[in-house]
Design a protein around this nucleic acid. Structure first.
Length: 1013
RNA sequence: GGGUGAUUAGCUCAGUUGGUAGAGCGCUUCCUUUACACGGAAGAUGUCGGGAGUUCGAGCCUCUCAUCACCCA
């Protein structure tokens, strides 16, 4: 069947992929001929995910590496899988429930909701795995892993797996080693999802905000002299004040203030440090008084220099409050509204005052229970509360005032007094998924004590065991890890790995030797299973406690149940335990990806792929994931998970802008595949993969590489056209023909270049080299050169050329396969009888040294040079393209003569030369072509425009002159000759000789022409 | 404010120990010549962001300024 005119990617690609998959071509260890393993872990996409250009890019890199190693006979595994993606998936399913009119999550309850999530996953999750096949990804799909596999809630229809076991085992071990702890800390709280999130999930965005200035009156109407000075110490303001001025962007948090802080060197406030001031909001009778303290935190030059300290609502204040033992009053509920629980404000304020006065001891739990929000603000949204607080303070006259020019009713400018409110750009934290303003919240959470496990991960890079590419990533890595914060790993979600910790009442020994339960103080047991937890409680209690299930607040259920039963004195019946309702941060489980996917903690055969080799991922995920995998692998297995981290930038559009739906500049990789084929998209990806480079995807480029595919295709139709038989794998002939020797040498060069580039992760160099070789060498020159031989009647030359051509084309397919797997596999299959499919073909190991024939190389380059020069000269003096011309030559040396003799058929054909005659002198009106070893000329006395030809030669002379100037300048400089390396000097000298010869020829040619003119 | 990177042909970008600038696209001219018009041939275009320094020699190293991008406060 004759070849189609072009490669039909649309129909061929799915067919070829199916062939690979059916043949098990990508299974772990497929085509392995040696023991060394090569393993890449796919960064697991969210189960909700779709393939975007970023995936397309990094999949191309990973697939290139994997296919390359597989062809080299390594025992390869490219491990795929999906991430359960806590928040994203829970959100998606909740949305789905709403759209299909089903009950809400909270109405369903935990168990039913999780069923729905699993149902959703089975029906709609993991679409990206099908999309990845369209890219040609050579992953072992049979091993596809899921970060929630083996979870208690997983239905029987789910693919089996034990990732959940790995997660729980690691949690329990780390807990037992003291690497995981629970504590009340200020965390980033997402009021939309009502969960804590990690620092990394917060995006700080600059928004237009306001800075309000308020007066905090001093207690008891006290006054002090407030003095402001300029830089030189001159007094610029001196007044008596009965207040301290505070600037804030968040007035609603004033209700939770515990102190006002000033810098200890701030002379302005020195007289009032240690005194009390009043929070100017809330019912007048219960105004709280708070102390004025010193702390290094306040910046004397910013605002008024005095800062209100609200430990429960700001990360900086939190640190100040911890240092100063200042109570931290939480003001908001989980939705970011002002608290409505607790005792009436009057009572709370009285207690708080006693604390502030130092009359009362306090502890964390007690402060946490107190609601310092006055009744009039309770239940309000935080932003509404802000408005109201500002209004109330202003109405009472406690806003700092300033003057401003405004127009009155008559349109005249008049001065008026207004509250001092600065318009200010402020950095506001937003949830990266919810897009709502994040609220620092003081809550009980689980943390990984990262400071304790960061060491080995840092050393891995510092000691070079793990290399980050590009190198600049290493600095960023150090900076983050050296300043690492505890990692908050608990999330108040349902979809995820539920924390394996159970709580029950603590047991207290009484003075009389009896023991009693305390339900307000809980005992905590961490265990891999419910059974183990119950057993442990049994050994403490002396009986096996039941487990509280399904309660909205299990802790409260325990207390209520206890009180009820205690009244009837049967304590044991009321002693129940409950599991921590929180789930783990998704990144906690993905941190275990490098070994969790291989069946760990079981001792599986697949564990031979750990540690893996290369991790390819976006720069933005270095901390989220890469650093955590490195820490966790060391913490659990005491090994580094990979030796190389290849980081790439975000893929942008052709103009370098981020793609976004709102901007409408999103490029869908699947559209590109539909239009130009996966190979074109992949080639474009490889070509833009310059280390550390900005990734701008351009449809024009992709189109260009589709054209390249077609070029390759046509090289094979060339072979078909010349009826070159293709019985099976081509064997490299011992070439005698110069052109065959030459192209074989070029193939050796490109193989080395490609391997060197791949080894150095310079995929763009590999792609460029292959493009230049296939198109620029093979198609442009070799195929053209081969024509006369293929059409000629020298049977042995013809046979050798056919063999060489087949071999060279085979090499193109093999070397291009990692980048363009589809079209190369298709072309490979055109041969009658292949030993293996191309995906498993043997990667060549020949070297340029072995294959290059220096004489052939020199000769062919001379031939190409001559053809180029003749063509160029013809075009410039407007010789009709079709016309064949006679050519003259003077002073042709032996080498030149033999080069001509060996290749004159090719030269004459490609340069359209009719004949060559040796002459002593060129006739007048002759186009001159200086070559190494002889000067060629085209006699065109009648056709030639003398002026034009002189202009042409002079232009060449000019260029030459520049080069000569440089060379002579260098060589005449004794310091250059003295200090430059010998080979550089020798090269310059040789070059100079060559150029001078050319110059002489050109001069002679110009002189001849001037004779005519 | 701190950090990282960028600034090279009209556009998008390469340029690995310093040896005198390249690719693709686009553009101009010619060509439907028996693999290929998704093609062939020829051609034009750069004070390598500005300035200074080190060096025989700087796109590359150092300093400085400017502009932009991203990350973190």
């Amino acid at each position: 069947m004759p070849m189609e005119k072009t490669f039909d990617a649309q129909t061929a690609e799915p067919r070829i992929y199916k062939m690979w998959e059916d043949a098990g071509a990508f299974k772990a260890g497929a085509n392995a001929s040696r023991d060394e393993t090569f393993c890449i872990m796919l960064p697991p996409p969210n189960v909700t995910g779709h393939l975007h250009v970023g995936h397309a890019f990094n999949h191309t890199i990973m697939d290139m590496l994997t296919r390359w190693k597989r062809m080299q006979g390594y025992d390869t595994l490219w491990q795929p899988g999906l991430d359960h993606a806590g928040i994203a998936t829970q959100l998606m399913v909740e949305k789905d429930l709403a759209e299909t009119g089903q009950p809400k999550r909270v109405d369903l309850g935990r168990e039913k909701f999780l069923e729905k999530v699993w149902e959703w996953k089975a029906a709609k999750g993991g679409q990206i795995e099908q999309q990845a096949r369209r890219l040609g990804d050579s992953m072992d799909w049979s091993r596809s892993a899921f970060t929630m596999s083996g979870a208690e809630s997983a239905p029987a229809t789910e693919k089996p797996g034990n990732f959940h076991d790995a997660v729980l085992k690691v949690f329990v071990e780390m807990y037992n080693k003291g690497l995981i702890y629970r504590g009340k800390r200020l965390v980033n709280w997402d009021p939309h999802f009502e969960t804590a999130i990690s620092d990394l999930e917060v995006e700080n965005i600059e928004v237009d905000g306001h800075m309000w200035h308020f007066k905090y009156p001093l207690a008891g109407g006290e006054t002090y002299e407030y003095v402001e000075k300029d830089e030189d110490g001159n007094v610029t303001l001196r007044e008596v004040r009965d207040y301290i001025s505070i600037a804030t962007t968040r007035p609603e948090t004033m209700l939770g203030d515990g102190a006002v802080a000033v810098h200890k060197d701030d002379e302005r406030y020195a007289p009032i440090v240690g005194k009390l001031c009043e929070i100017p909001v809330g019912p007048k009778e219960q105004r709280r008084l708070i102390p004025i303290i010193t702390d290094p935190y306040p910046d004397m030059d910013f605002g008024s220099g005095a800062v209100k300290i609200t430990g429960a609502h700001d990360f900086n204040d939190y640190e100040v409050a911890k240092r100063g033992g200042i109570p931290m009053y939480a003001l908001m509920d989980t939705k970011g509204a002002m608290r409505a629980d607790g005792k009436p404000y009057v009572e709370e304020a009285t207690t708080a005052q006693a604390i502030a006065n130092g009359e009362m001891e306090f502890d964390e739990a007690m402060i946490a229970a107190m609601n310092m929000v006055p009744e009039e603000y309770r239940g309000l949204d935080r932003f509404e509360a802000r408005k109201l607080v500002v209004e109330d303070i202003t109405a009472e006259g406690n806003a700092v005032m300033t003057t401003k020019m405004v127009k009155n009713e008559e349109g005249e400018e008049v001065e008026t007094t207004v509250p001092y409110v600065e318009d200010k750009k402020i950095m506001q934290p937003f949830g990266d998924r919810s897009k709502v303003v994040i609220e620092p919240a003081l809550t009980d959470q689980w943390f990984v004590d990262t400071a304790k496990i960061v060491g080995p991960a840092l050393d891995a890079v510092k000691e070079g065991r793990t290399k980050i590419m590009p190198e600049s990533g290493e600095k960023v890595y150090y900076h983050w890890l050296e300043n690492i914060e505890p990692w908050c790993i608990s999330r108040q979600l349902w979809w995820g790995h539920q924390i394996p910790v159970w709580y029950g009442p603590s047991m207290e020994s009484n003075a009389d030797g009896s023991r009693s339960f305390n339900v307000s103080k809980l005992h905590m047991v961490c265990a891999a299973t419910e059974q183990e937890a119950q057993n442990e409680f049994e050994s403490l209690y002396g009986f096996k406690p039941e487990i509280i299930e399904g309660a909205v607040s299990p802790a409260q259920a325990l207390i209520d149940g206890f009180a009820a039963v205690q009244a009837g004195k049967n304590e044991n019946a009321a002693i129940k335990i409950f599991r921590d309702p929180d789930v783990l941060d998704t990144w906690f489980s993905s941190g275990l990806w490098p070994f969790g996917t291989l069946g760990w903690p079981e001792d599986t055969e697949a564990m031979k792929y750990f540690p893996g080799d290369v991790l390819v991922t976006g720069q933005d995920i270095l901390f989220f994931w890469v650093a955590r995998m490195m820490m966790m692998s060391q913490a659990v297995l005491e090994q580094d998970p990979f030796h190389t981290v290849y980081l790439h930038q975000l893929v942008r559009d052709a103009k370098g802008e981020k793609m976004s739906k709102t901007k409408g500049n999103v490029i869908d990789p699947l559209d590109m595949i539909d239009l130009y084929g996966a190979d074109a998209l992949r080639f474009s990806n490889a070509q833009m993969a310059a280390l550390g480079g900005v990734l701008k995807i351009s449809e024009d480029r992709i189109k260009g590489y589709r054209n390249f595919s077609t070029k390759l295709w046509n090289a094979f139709s060339f072979a078909e056209h010349y009826e070159i038989s293709y019985p099976g794998d081509a064997i490299r002939p011992e070439a005698t023909q110069t052109l065959n020797k030459w192209i074989i040498g070029e193939t050796g060069k490109v193989r080395e270049t490609v391997d060197a580039a791949m080894e150095a992760y310079r995929f763009n160099d590999a792609a460029d080299a292959l493009y230049a070789f296939t198109w620029g060498k093979v198609c442009d020159w070799y195929l053209e050169f081969s024509k006369p031989i293929l059409q000629g009647d020298d049977a042995s030359a013809k046979l050798e050329t056919e063999q060489t051509l087949r071999w060279v084309l085979d090499q193109c397919l093999i070397l291009l396969h990692p980048i363009m797997p589809f079209i190369t596999e298709e072309l490979w299959g055109l041969a009658d009888n292949r030993t293996k499919m191309l995906a498993h073909a043997d990667w060549p190991t020949y070297t340029a040294n072995e294959l290059i024939d220096a004489d052939a190389d020199r000769e062919m380059n001379w031939v190409i040079g001559l053809i180029d020069n003749v063509r160029s000269a013809r075009a410039q003096v407007h010789v009709p393209a079709g016309a064949k011309v006679p050519v003259l030559v003077t002073g042709l040396d032996a080498k030149g003569q033999s080069a001509w003799d060996n290749n004159h058929v090719l030269i004459q054909r490609l340069a359209r030369i009719e004949s060559l005659s040796h002459v002593d002198d060129f006739p007048k009106g002759c186009v001159t072509i200086p070559m190494e070893g002889g000067t060629f000329g085209i006699p065109l006395a009648d056709l030639i425009d003398v002026g034009e030809e002189i202009a042409r030669l002079e232009k060449t002379m000019q260029k030459l002159g520049k080069e000569l100037g440089g060379l002579r300048g260098r060589l005449n400089n004794p310091k250059f000759v003295a200090s430059a390396p010998d080979e550089v000097v020798a090269e310059a000298k040789a070059n100079l000789a060559l150029r001078e010869n050319e110059e002489a020829q050109l001069k002679a040619a110009i002189a001849r022409l001037q004779e005519i003119g």
